[in-house]
């Protein structure tokens, strides 16, 4: 018998990361540095929000949760479980690209691991998401490489973006306070600690090719808190903007 509270906790944090990162990606729409990048971030926004929706739908249909729209748009900030990484404002393009690289490789690892999940909805969804994520990681890897080789200023900025982002990105893998062991024992997923190590193995070769230096990870303090409702000051304004249209008439049919 699956532990529904544990599953719910895991699904909410995954979905909220997708939703908030999706919203941040959408903020590049119309503002991308070149047309292709404008389109790329807009497309990735659409994919991410679609993946969030699919996860909220599992909550709704399998675990007695609310309708995906209601759940996404009408929850108070403290009930969100998104990581601090995705809450951060877009900043300059170097920051956005580095976050995209670190976040999407983490997602790729996570969905690959869910192919072996004991929870069937995860197995079915992960096949779909894993294939789509290929294009996100392909895009991220290409730009990390390209900009790190584009001269001194460009290289310095990419290295600085990495230094700024790495502790936030390590915070994606904050273990659940109550459910980590149950989820691992039930073979729902391999656990945050294991995913973190797989993620380091995946980002490292790309960083080496780009001649970027991964900071000494044992000296990094991962930025935790998001998974249990403690957020940066950036989340609340984002939620307000994201749900503005929905809240004009929450009962409207689209």
């Amino acid at each position: 018998m699956m532990n529904n509270a544990a599953l719910t906790d895991l699904i909410i944090k995954m979905a909220d990361d997708e939703l908030i990162q999706g919203h941040r990606n959408s903020e590049w729409t119309g503002l991308g540095p070149v047309m292709e990048e404008d389109i790329a971030f807009s497309s990735m926004a659409q994919d991410k929000i679609g993946h969030a929706w699919a996860l909220y739908r599992i909550l709704h249909e399998d675990l007695g949760g609310k309708h995906p729209d209601t759940f996404a748009f009408l929850r108070p900030e403290k009930e969100f479980k998104s990581s601090h990484l995705v809450e951060m404002p877009n900043g300059e393009y170097d920051f956005s690209l580095m976050r995209h690289f670190l976040f999407d490789l983490a997602e790729a690892i996570r969905y690959e691991s869910l192919q072996d999940s004991s929870y069937e909805p995860f197995r079915l969804l992960s096949k779909k998401v894993k294939g789509e994520l290929k294009y996100h990681t392909l895009h991220a890897n290409a730009w990390i490489m390209q900009l790190s080789r584009a001269g001194e200023e460009s290289y310095d900025r990419m290295q600085q973006a990495l230094n700024q982002t790495i502790a936030l990105a390590a915070g994606i893998f904050e273990p659940s306070q109550h459910y980590e062991e149950a989820l691992i024992d039930d073979k729902v997923y391999p656990g945050e600690k294991e995913l973190y190590h797989r993620w380091l193995d995946r980002i490292y070769p790309v960083l080496v090719k780009a001649s970027l230096n991964l900071p000494e990870m044992s000296a990094i303090v991962p930025v935790y808190g998001g998974r249990h409702g403690l957020h940066t000051p950036h989340l609340q304004p984002l939620l307000k903007e994201m749900s503005e249209v929905f809240n004009l008439d929450a009962e409207a049919s689209w």
Partner: peptide
Amino acid sequence: LRSPFGSTL
């Protein structure tokens, strides 16, 4: 390949 993303997903 110019971009892995285009006018539709």
